[in-house]
Computed example of a mutant assay.
Amino acid sequence: MEGQPDVEPRNQDQMDREREPAEDEWQSWQRGQVRNTLHLVSAAAQWILLLACLIYLGIDSLQPSTPRSDEVPWTHIRYTGKSIKGVAMNLTAELGSIQIRNGSIMITCDGLYLVSLKGLIFFPELEDSLKLTLQKMDKSRMTLCEQTVQNSGSAVDFTTVLFLFAQDNITLWTSSNATIKDLSFSLVLLISPLKCNM
């Protein structure tokens, strides 16, 4: 009987030694299971994101596209005739996409516009100069730019850049009665902060 107590501790030590590798193996297996679960969740999330992207692209491609004009707004006007002091010149478009209504150029898009005026101006001898004025046709009649012609029969050659707004109506005026020959007036949109709807 005295030998039995010695057997129990040895069996207990042996069992502890046998249990340690089994516990290590069990913990290793659990870590592997957790890792596998994380891989599975990660793969499922990636597939869900991929599917969502494909659905979004598919829906976007099925929507009808709105017609957009890639054409740059511009106009070219040729004018020969008489101008009357205090009356806007009756301009008509020769070429271009910008409309002219009742002698006014109808701006349809905000942006920087290149403005070019070329031609010959003849005015009465009583006048020593004449002003060509580009104005907005609103209540304020704001002057956008002005070119002074010193001598009758002088050539006008004027180019500038203006920022114009959609819904502006632009007209050309003279400061006295004049005869205008081969006036070439061009207006071209250079830069627009927004897409234009023509």
Rank of each mutant, 00 (worst) to 15 (best):
P9W: 05
I170C: 05
Q167R: 10
L172E: 05
F122L: 07
Q46K: 13
G111H: 01
V188T: 15
K195S: 15
I100V: 09
P124H: 00
E2L: 13
A166H: 07
R78K: 14
R35Q: 15
L162V: 09
T174D: 04
M106E: 12
K181R: 11
E71R: 15
Y56R: 03
Y79N: 02
A43I: 12
D24N: 12
I191P: 04
D60Y: 05
D110F: 02
V115H: 07
P21N: 05
K181Q: 10
S176N: 02
L95D: 11
S42L: 15
K131Q: 13
N90F: 04
T75K: 03
L144V: 08
L134N: 11
T133F: 00
S97R: 06
E23R: 13
T160L: 04
Q27P: 03
Q14V: 07
P9G: 10
I105E: 03
K139Y: 12
V115T: 02
R19L: 13
G103T: 00
L40W: 10
L91M: 07
L162M: 04
C53F: 05
L134Q: 03
C53N: 08
W29C: 13
L62R: 06
V149W: 00
Q30E: 14
P193Y: 07
T108P: 04
R101H: 09
S129F: 09
P67K: 10
W74K: 15
P124S: 05
W74A: 15
T171K: 10
F122K: 08
I59M: 07
Q12S: 09
W26S: 15
L194Q: 15
I98G: 01
C53W: 04
T159F: 04
T171D: 08
T133C: 03
S42R: 15
D110I: 00
I48N: 07
I48Q: 09
D168I: 04
G119Y: 02
